[in-house]
């Protein structure tokens, strides 16, 4: 069998990615902790394997791009939680809108301001802008405003890991009385990882966090063409 044939390579790297992902999930169930999270462990294992086999990113992503393409149907899948939470949206839309606008504005302004302050390049600034929203949306926005979507995916993961940990500390400091505020904090600040954390705090917090994550992604994607013109 020819190791370098396209099919063998595609099967090998796709299988390695899926296996490391499943192994990471299993490990995390047995020993919960941020270092075993598939958010952290799976990419690190894959990077190790790619380095050992001298694989470049370009060659790797050619074989596994079909997995990234599945973010498209994952976007469609968000219709179900939006539909199921429609009562919550109808009742609280003014508060949710205020929170999402303030959160998105702060996310973009802080990324842009801090990146400029530290002298990061223009492309990096743009790739950092959408890091607070869920991946399929973030990568779309990044491409649209002139960032590098793949780098944005990295920043989104780092944001998720940091946000899930930071959120708990912030909860202890801020005098938040409503479950909505606690949920919005996680859904806006740390997307998927934050939603998981919010579910651990309470079911209302979890539902709000999930809803805020989905809606904020949607709002940002729809605003992206406008944003691209401004930047």
């Amino acid at each position: 069998m020819n190791w370098n044939s396209v099919i063998v390579q595609a099967v090998f790297w796709s299988a390695a990615t899926i296996l490391f992902y499943l192994a990471g999930k299993r490990l995390h169930r047995r020993r919960p902790g941020w270092w075993t999270s598939p958010l952290m462990a799976t990419p690190l294992l894959l990077i190790g394997l790619a380095l050992a086999l001298h694989e470049t990113y370009g060659a790797y992503i050619r074989q596994t791009h079909w997995l990234v393409a599945l973010l498209g149907p994952a976007t469609v899948a968000f219709a179900v939680p939006i539909w199921e939470q429609r009562a919550l949206i109808r009742r609280h839309w003014p508060v949710l809108t205020a929170g999402m606008l303030a959160g998105s504005g702060t996310a973009m302004a802080s990324a842009w301001g801090l990146a400029r302050l530290l002298g990061l390049s223009g492309t990096l600034q743009l790739s950092l802008l959408p890091r607070s929203i869920s991946t399929p949306f973030a990568m779309t926005v990044s491409g649209e405003i002139g960032g590098v979507p793949d780098l944005t995916a990295v920043f989104v993961i780092v944001t998720g890991i940091c946000g899930a940990a930071l959120g708990e500390a912030i909860l202890k400091i801020l005098p938040l009385r409503s479950a909505m505020a606690r949920g919005a904090l996680f859904g806006m600040g740390a997307h998927g990882a934050g939603v998981a954390k919010a579910h651990g705090i309470g079911s209302e917090e979890g539902a709000i966090a999930g809803l805020v994550m989905v809606l904020v992604g949607l709002v940002n994607v729809l605003a992206a063409p406008l944003l691209a013109r401004l930047l």
């Binding site: 992902y21 990419p43 990113y57 997995l67 990234v68 599945l70 991946t135 590098v148 979507p149 993961i157």
Partner: peptide, 8 residues
Amino acid sequence: FFIPAVLA
């Protein structure tokens, strides 16, 4: 689905 992009 987005882990492959992280290898960037």
